[in-house]
Structures are given as structure tokens and as C-alpha cells.
Design a binder for these strands. Structure first.
Length: 418
RNA sequence: GCGGUCGUGGUGAAGUUGGUUAACACACUGGAUUGUGGCUCCAGCAUUUCGUGGGUUCGAGUCCCAUCGAUCGCCCCA
């Protein structure tokens, strides 16, 4: 019998785990600077949490892992829905200071064809703030994401931003788009036929049709924004300017989830190696999700970062991850020494040191090699002869100096050389 | 879901128009040095085996089909 990881999943081996731990530490530190607190929701929810009526995204329509009676449960394909569901379920709007600020880290699941930077189980870090609708908060949320990307040494990025406007603006625009495209439906691709009904906005960023003059000359949302929406967006841009964050306004940017209103953004890698999956993080404001899950009328804002992509870019951009911690002591043996190495290692660990004892009777040479590989600061040689006098030999691998040390003085000797 | 490329040991890989013995390097293990490593030298290390399962052939790692996986592009998105 031999098994391997299912398609689109992967093991994170110890050497890689060190990188993940480094990254997770940074995520928590940065989130904490903005006073975000972690929230942990289940890895699966009732299917309805994700499959909201009228959602046109592929993620919700054909990429979900559903199971149970009639597919009543679904492995979470994204983080926002679960957080908002939880916020409403526990009526946190009644007990928390607004805006409530949450972050989450964990696996997401989508049934897609795997590719570089696209797995079936992948990891996202995301933030959501709920209960305050203010342009400055939108800008601050984007800044948080950029802080994270920068902390991993990634510099080659571009911030793309757009506004979808409020309901009235969006409704007017959608009608204009339908009216514009309907007579030309034969010129559009199959996916866009569906989009015309469900969410005509998405025709604009269709990869198949975007070169068509028909699409290029389509009505622009900017022309349908009402005063309030326009002012809000200007406020966001001004706030970004104030922080010195450069951005590009992309009026084709509409995002994958249909729940967005007003600000939407994407931060992409400009390095060519990142391939087709260049988006590092993306998100936006959502005015109706809190209400949808049974809460009050409250607006929220958030984004999600793909951590696999972040780590890949950190490596490509030359970020150096912390080295494995060296051992304080590696204990090797000569002759018949019984359980003495174990006892010594145990004592060192009680004192808070990292120690490993070699239990094999291999040649000195190979035991020294093992000690080298462990990058031990000290090699303790427990020999049959010395043990009779209650001593061991201690070699400092930094200086190369070797001394005979009485057992009861070993600990203070090692600590003295720290 | 669609299209292209690929799949040989622990790793990187060589493998000619299908023809006895699957290079080479690194890593690993042991020895030279029977109580002291990081250098050097020597030896061992895929032995019904070339992702898996069928097929063609006197004969297949080399050809065909299927399947699983990886990878790149499309779609989608983090």
C-alpha cells in the first residue's frame, strides 16, 4: 500500500514549517498593531453560509466541497462568510466596540485544477472589521495588508483599486450594462451570457472578451456613481495618499465575490515568475453581509491574503527565513556508559537547554558528524573511563577547546559559556 | 472544466533509430584512523527495477492506450 497526498494538497515538512511559523508570527504581530484579534470559526459550515442566493462566482457555484445529507455542509472556500455568521450568531454587535476587528488564519478549500499558486487546500490570512463605514478605515485596512507583504521582503507589488459604488449607483449601472450588451449577446463568450443575467459587472473583467471593442467601449461605472459614492471613493484615495501608498485605479476591477459594495482592491505581484496567479491579496467593503446573516444594518471591510503565494514570493525576493535553533549540547558516548547520557540530557533540559543524547554505539567519527549537523554549541563526550571519576569531556564547537569537567559542574560550565 | 509538457534511486539527473550488465554527481552508511568531527582516499548504496495498470514485440525505461500525479497556459481566484 502506498498513498500520496490528494491532488491539490501538500505536506508541510519541518524545514518548511519553520517558514510558516515565522510568517504566522509576523501576521499576528502586525494584526495586533492594528488592534485586530483572532477569531476561529469551523472549517465547514452549513452550505447556505457560502452559497448565498444570486452569487455568480465560480467559487460558490462550482468549486465547493460539499458533503453530508444533500450536501448540506461545505468546507469553507473563504473566510469572510464564516466570520460574519459568527459575529451575528453571537450578537457581537451588542457587546463589542465598533468597529469590531477580527483576523483569521487557516485552510480554505476549493475544488479547482491545481496550478502554481493554486491548491485545493490552501491557507489564507484575512481581516474583517465591522460596524464602521469610513473611507479612512478602508485605506487603513489596505495598509495593514501592505505591511504584511512588506514584512516578508516583497517590494514588487501594485495596488489596484476601484469602487463599485452604493446600491443605487450599482443598480443604475447594471441596468445600463444590460441594456448595452443585450443587443450584442452573440459576440460574447458563454460565461458572459450567464454574467449578463446574474452580474453584468463581471463581463468587464472577462479574460476572453476583454479585448473586444464592445467591452472596451462599454459604459463606465464612474459615469453612474452618485455623489455620495464618488465622495466616499475620493475619501479612500485621499487617505491612501496621506499614508504614501501608491495605487492604480482600475475601473475593470470588480472582484470575485458578489457581496462587495464601494471599495474593492487587489494587490498583485509584478514579478513575472508569479505567473497567472499574481494576486497576493484582495478584498473590499461589503454593506449587506451582516444583515444577510441576521444582524443589524452594518457595513464591513476586509481582505484575504494567500499565504502560499506570499511565502513563494518571499523566497523569490530573497527574504531570508530564520535558521533552525542550534542545540546547546549534543551528547556522544564511548564504551559502556549505560544510561548516563540520558540522565545528563535530562538534567540539561530541566535547566531549559536544548540537548540531544546519542543512544547508538556508532563510531566516534559518525557521532561527531551528527553533532555537526545539529550545529551543537557543545559536544559532551561521555567516556567509560571518565565516567568512573564522575567526569565528562566538554568540547566547545565554537572555540574547539575541550576540557574535562566534573559532572556536578557541567551545568554551570555550559551556562557560563552561553 | 479545457489545452500543452513531463513522471528513472534519498536528491539532481544520463539513458543514442526499442537489443545482454540502468552512467555521472551529491547525499547517506561503513572503513583507512579499534577514544575525537568538518579535508582526502576506498568500499557499499535502483538487482523480477524505470509513477501505476494494460497492450504491441523474439525483446520496452525507450512505442501505443488507460490511470494517477506534477507543471505551464486558459478559466477562476488567495
Amino acid at each position: 500500500m502506498s498513498y500520496q497526498t490528494p491532488r491539490g494538497t501538500y505536506d508541510i515538512l519541518p524545514e518548511e514549517v519553520r517558514k510558516w511559523q515565522d510568517l504566522e508570527q509576523k501576521l499576528r504581530d502586525i494584526a495586533s498593531r492594528y488592534d485586530y484579534e483572532e477569531i476561529r470559526t469551523p472549517y465547514f459550515e452549513d452550505t447556505g453560509v457560502f452559497a448565498r442566493k444570486g452569487d455568480s462566482s465560480d467559487m460558490v457555484n462550482k468549486e465547493m466541497y460539499s458533503f453530508g445529507d444533500n450536501g448540506s455542509f461545505t468546507l469553507r472556500p473563504e473566510g469572510t462568510a464564516g466570520v460574519i455568521r459568527s459575529f451575528d450568531q453571537h450578537k457581537l454587535y451588542g457587546s463589542m466596540e465598533m468597529p469590531a476587528r477580527f483576523y483569521y488564519v487557516g485552510p480554505m478549500f476549493r475544488h479547482e485544477r491545481p496550478q502554481k499558486g493554486r491548491q485545493r487546500q490552501f491557507t489564507q490570512f484575512g481581516v474583517e472589521n465591522i460596524g464602521l463605514k469610513d473611507p479612512q478605515l478602508d485605506a487603513e485596512t489596505i495598509a495593514l495588508g501592505i505591511d504584511i507583504v512588506r514584512s516578508m521582503g516583497i517590494r514588487s507589488i501594485k495596488v489596484c483599486i476601484n469602487t463599485l459604488g452604493d446600491d443605487a449607483s450599482r443598480k443604475a449601472y447594471n441596468e445600463a450594462l444590460r441594456a448595452y450588451f443585450a443587443p450584442h449577446i452573440d459576440e460574447l463568450c458563454g460565461d458572459c451570457h450567464r454574467r449578463l443575467e446574474q452580474n453584468p459587472l463581471r463581463i468587464l473583467d472577462c479574460k476572453v472578451d476583454h479585448e473586444l471593442d464592445l467591452v472596451k467601449n462599454a459604459p463606465r461605472l464612474a459615469d453612474y456613481l452618485n455623489e455620495e459614492s464618488r465622495t466616499y471613493f475620493d475619501g479612500v484615495l485621499k487617505a491612501l495618499d496621506a499614508m504614501g501608498i501608491e495605487y492604480e485605479i482600475d475601473d475593470r476591477l470588480v472582484r470575485g465575490l458578489d457581496y462587495y459594495t464601494h471599495t474593492v482592491f487587489e494587490v498583485i505581484s509584478t514579478r513575472p515568475e508569479s505567473g497567472a496567479q499574481a494576486t497576493i491579496f484582495g478584498g473590499g467593503r461589503y454593506d449587506h453581509l451582516v444583515e444577510y446573516f441576521g444582524g443589524p444594518e452594518m457595513s464591513g471591510m476586509g481582505f484575504a491574503i494567500g499565504l502560499e503565494r506570499l511565502l513563494a514570493l518571499a523566497g523569490e525576493d530573497g527574504y531570508t527565513f530564520p535558521e533552525k535553533q542550534p542545540l546547546d549540547a549534543y551528547i556522544i558516548t564511548l564504551g559502556e556508559v549505560g544510561a548516563a547520557p540520558l540522565a545528563i540530557a535530562s538534567r540539561l533540559r530541566q535547566a531549559g537547554m536544548r540537548a540531544v543524547a546519542n543512544f547508538t554505539k556508532r563510531s566516534l567519527k559518525s557521532q561527531f558528524k551528527s553533532a555537526d549537523r545539529a550545529h551543537a554549541k557543545h559536544i559532551i563526550i561521555v567516556g567509560e573511563e571518565e565516567l568512573k571519576n564522575n567526569t565528562v569531556n566538554v568540547k566547545n564547537t565554537g572555540t574547539g577547546v575541550q576540557e574535562t569537567v566534573a559532572l556536578e559542574q557541567l551545568l554551570s560550565k555550559l551556562q557560563g559559556e552561553e
